[in-house]
């Protein structure tokens, strides 16, 4: 039985130094996370009673990418939740049927919830902050 993830104090752990380093690019991270969570949800809804290897591989790859991005910008708790889901999907690729569609959707919603909380904490940097941090507005490129 796959372990269900629940938001906890550790799930919200943030490396503030990393967040500061990447602050001018946080809006790109948020865009990527929102698209990624929508893709995970869509893939999970196609996940039937039987694991489909191609679907699992797509879920695993997306989960892996979002974990790396979250780790990079300093959202460690979120990265940890994504890593745990990634590992469960890896196991399911070897022995199919370990994770159900319901459990998968529940875990994705937990990740989405922690993501929303992280985003609310930091929000979107102002154009002035971005310009000051990098000398040029990344959104203008």
């Amino acid at each position: 039985m796959a372990q269900t993830l629940t938001p906890s104090g550790s799930a919200h752990y943030i490396d503030r130094r990393a967040v500061e380093r990447w602050h001018p690019f946080l809006h790109l991270y948020f865009e990527s996370m929102e698209a990624g969570i929508a893709e995970l949800r869509s893939l999970a809804q196609q996940f039937g009673e039987t694991s489909k290897p191609e679907l699992l591989r797509m879920l695993h790859l997306r989960c892996h990418g979002l974990k790396g991005a979250s780790e990079t910008v300093g959202f460690k708790g979120l990265a940890s939740l994504l890593r745990r889901l990634e590992r469960q999907l890896e196991k399911d690729l070897v022995v199919p049927g370990r994770i159900s569609a319901g459990e998968l959707i529940k875990q994705i919603e937990t990740i989405a919830s922690v993501y929303r909380a992280s985003r609310e904490m930091f929000g979107k940097p102002s154009a002035e902050e971005e310009t000051n941090a990098s000398g040029q507005d990344p959104r203008s490129r």
Binding site: W22, F25, L28, Y29, E31, S32, M33, A35, L61, G65, L66, G68, A69, T72, V73, S134, G135, Q136, P138, R141
Partner: peptide
Amino acid sequence: ADDEPFIARSLSYVLQR
């Protein structure tokens, strides 16, 4: 080369700069 859009776009920006 990275399939994660955030990594590709942010690296692209800092390298161009």
